[in-house]
């Protein structure tokens, strides 16, 4: 019995980890005022690049390159939405299309198949790979950065009232670029975790909507790092409920269990909306 509970907790934490990375990313981006629904695409490229790079260069370079690939994709989003003031949702959709397209088309064209096995193996400490700890540390670090540093104050000011920040000498464009690129790096890390550490391979479309759940977690968590952590853990544990249910032989069909996190998200959003508010200027392009 204890064994089952421990397995459940461990599994829950592991399943939350990619969500935590992506969700944190979302927080940085939206706090600077840019909606980023392209987290899914950024996670996918992170997952893909980290496996391929990992196989060639090793575990750590692989992960770093995965994060970098996410950052590059995010850069595209930033250019479109911050410099060219394009609609942020449309840009996010395009990022996802790019991510999906790239991560299917390149492996199939180059390797003839869409799953790539990872040749790296990550060390584990009591069942958790290093990136899990990195994720937790990043949550604490992000809280510090966003709410206790000058950088964080300025980043948030740009997301609340860019006009004010602008008149006080803060570069709205620069802050938003940084926020968006950080979100890409984190999403890339989330993808890297999934492919290298969690499943030891990359398969097409493996992110399967987690980028969107991460968005929901961010909203539910009130756009704060700890809030996002809590929400991601909730979703992660809900996900790992699957294993428990199967262990106990309860006959709920897998597809139904799979849809529970999404349903949960809607329920939470529909009821929580009155409590939490996004950054004031979230989603609006800034023009002088």
């Amino acid at each position: 019995m204890i064994g089952v509970i421990i397995a459940f907790v461990g599994s829950g934490i592991r399943r939350s980890t990619p969500l935590i990375f992506a969700s944190l990313g979302g927080v940085y981006s939206e706090r600077s005022g840019v909606v980023n629904i392209g987290l899914e695409g950024m996670m996918l490229v992170g997952a893909f690049v980290s496996v391929v790079a990992g196989n060639v260069f090793g575990l750590v370079p692989g992960i770093l390159l995965g994060a970098l690939s996410g950052t590059l994709l995010a850069l595209l989003h930033a250019v479109a939405t911050v410099t060219f003031k394009a609609n942020q949702i449309v840009s996010g959709v395009a990022i996802n299309l790019l991510g999906m397209g790239l991560t299917e088309f390149i492996p199939e064209a180059m390797f003839g198949k869409t799953n790539i096995e990872s040749l790296c193996s990550a060390p584990t400490i009591s069942g958790f790979t290093p990136l899990v700890f990195v994720a937790m540390a990043l949550v604490v670090l992000s809280h510090l950065i966003l709410f206790k540093t000058v950088f964080g104050l300025r980043l948030r000011s740009v997301g609340e009232n860019p006009k004010s920040a602008d008149t006080l000498g803060i570069s709205v464009e620069r802050m938003r670029y940084i926020g968006v690129m950080i979100s890409g790096a984190l999403a890339g890390l989330g993808g890297a975790y999934m492919s290298i550490e969690q499943s030891a391979c990359f398969t097409k479309n493996m992110v399967a909507g987690r980028g969107f759940i991460a968005l929901a977690a961010m909203i539910f968590g009130g756009w704060t790092p700890f809030g996002a952590l809590g929400a991601c853990l909730l979703f992660g544990f809900a996900d790992s409920l699957q294993t428990i249910i199967q262990t106990f032989g309860v006959a709920i069909p897998p597809p139904i269990i799979q849809l529970l996190p999404y349903l949960l998200t809607i329920v939470i959003l529909a009821s929580a909306v009155k409590r939490v508010r996004p950054p004031e200027a979230d989603g609006k392009p800034y023009e002088r």
């Binding site: 948030r156 000011s157 609340e160 009232n161 006009k163 004010s164 920040a165 008149t167 004031e280």
Partner: peptide, 9 residues
Amino acid sequence: QHFTLISRF
């Protein structure tokens, strides 16, 4: 005339 303050700060 129109304040440039950040409401939530």
